[in-house]
Write a protein that binds this DNA or RNA. Structure first.
Lengths: 217, 217
DNA sequence: GGCTAAATATACTCGCGGGTAAATTAGAGT
DNA sequence: ACTCTAATTTACCCGCGAGTATATTTAGCC
C-alpha cells in the first residue's frame, strides 16, 4: 500500500468522449504498467540472470506482490519472451530503417551495426541475447529461434547487397553474418553501463575493423 | 558417439556406462571416474543448460546415484567450474603453443583462432563460454573472471606482436580482441556437432574475414 | 575369514520459488 | 447509494532439486 507512485490524472471530459477517454486511459494505464513490469524484469534478468531472479524479486522491485505480476503476464517464461521480443525489435527496427536507404550496402551495414550495438547495451538487448533455448519450453524455443533468424537474414541480405553493388568484396555471407552477430552479441557479456565507452563508439571501431581487416593495406 | 578429437591432457571419451556398467568391470581409478563425472556434466550442461540439469540427471547418465557424484565433486557449482576450467585450458593451450613460434603475429593469431574454434565446439568449450557470472557465487565468479581475462590478455598480446612486426596494421587492440573473442565464443551458440562445417573450416573463414576485411582491396 | 577404508546406495531433509485460490480494495458507470 | 469489474493482496500449495546422514557393499590386505 505504500509508495506506489503516479496516480493517474484522467482527463475528465464531459459527455460522449468522456467514457471513451476514461476507458482509453485505463487501457493505456494497464499497458504502461505491463511495460513497467517487463522493463523491471529485463533489468533484473540482466543484473542477476534469469534463473537467479524470482518473480517475488521483480514484484518487490515494483512495490507490488507476485500475483500482481501474474495479472500482467502469464508466467515467467512469457516474461522473458517479452523482454526478448523488445530487444529483438530494437535491432529489427535498425535493419528496417536501412531498407529504404540508397547508400551502399557497406554503409548501410555500418549503420545497422551502430543500432545493433546500441540495442545490445540495453537491458532488452541483454535479454534478447541471453534468452537461450535452455530457458524456454520447446514451443517457445522454436518461436525465439524463428525470430532470431530474421536478424540473421537481415544481415545476410545487407551483405549480399553490398557484394552486388561492389562495396563489399565477395565473401562467405553466412560466416560473415555469424562473425558479425557474434562480435556484436558478445558485447552484452562485457559491457557495463558505467563503461566510458559509448555503444556508438564501440560500433564505430567494430565497423572499421570489419571493413578494413587486420592486414595492412 | 565420439567423433571428437582428443587434445592432450584433457580427458577424452565421455562415457558413462562403460566404466560402471557391470560391477565386475569397474575400474578403480579415482581420477578417471572424476573425469568421467566432469565430462558427463559438461555434455549435459551443453545439451540442456546448467540450470535445467540436475545432479540426479548427471548421476543417472553415469548409472550411479547422486551421492556418488558428490563423492567426486564438492557441489554443483564446483562441477560447472571444472567444466569451465577444462574449456579454458583447451584455449590457453592453443595460445601457449604459439608462444615459441617464430612466425608473424598475424600467422600466430590465425593458428590460435583455429584452436579456439576447435575448443569452442566441444562440450567444455560450451561450458567455458556459458559459465556466466550469474550462475556462480561471488567468490567463484571472481575466479572465473580472472581466468577468462587471461585469454583476453593472450589475444591482445598476439595482436600487439602482430602490430609491432608489421603483419597487423595498427588498431584498437582492446576492441579487436573483444570482437574476435565475441565472434569465436558465439560459435557455441549456433554450432551443432552434426554440422557439416568443421571447426577448422569455420576458423579458416573467420581468419580470412578478420585479416582481409569486407572492403574490396 | 575377518579388518579397514573407499565406493556406492537408500532414504531422507528442507527451502526456494513458480504458480494459484480466494478474499479485499478501488473506481467507474448507472 | 449500489453494482460490477479490474486491480491487488493475503495466504497458501507443492514439486523439484541441492545437499546429507547413514547404511551397505566392494576391494585390498593380513
Amino acid at each position: 500500500m505504500a509508495g506506489r507512485q503516479a496516480r493517474k490524472n484522467v482527463p475528465q471530459r464531459a459527455s460522449g468522449p468522456a467514457l471513451w477517454a476514461s476507458v482509453g486511459a485505463r487501457v493505456r494505464d494497464r499497458e504502461r504498467k505491463r511495460d513497467a513490469v517487463i522493463m523491471t524484469a529485463a533489468r533484473a534478468f540482466r543484473e542477476r540472470g534469469y534463473h537467479n531472479t524470482s518473480l517475488d524479486d521483480i514484484a518487490s522491485e515494483l512495490n507490488v506482490t507476485k500475483p500482481t505480476v501474474y495479472h500482467y503476464v502469464e508466467n515467467k517464461e512469457q516474461l522473458l519472451f517479452e523482454c526478448f521480443r523488445a530487444g529483438l525489435k530494437l535491432i529489427m527496427d535498425g535493419i528496417e530503417e536501412q531498407r529504404e536507404s540508397t547508400t551502399t550496402g557497406r554503409e548501410r551495414l555500418a549503420a545497422v551495426i551502430t543500432r545493433y550495438a546500441e540495442a545490445i547495451t540495453s537491458d532488452f538487448g541483454w535479454c534478447m541475447v541471453q534468452a537461450e533455448n535452455q530457458d524456454l519450453s520447446p514451443a517457445m524455443s522454436r518461436k525465439v529461434k524463428a525470430l532470431k533468424s530474421e536478424i540473421d537474414q537481415g544481415l545476410r541480405s545487407l551483405i549480399r547487397a553490398g557484394v552486388s553493388d561492389g562495396s563489399i568484396r565477395p565473401c562467405d555471407e553466412k560466416m560473415t553474418a555469424f562473425a558479425l552477430a557474434g562480435a556484436l552479441n558478445w558485447i552484452a557479456h562485457w559491457y557495463r553501463s558505467d563503461d566510458q565507452l559509448a555503444a556508438a563508439e564501440i560500433a564505430h571501431r567494430f565497423s572499421e575493423l570489419f571493413e578494413q581487416g587486420l592486414q595492412p593495406r
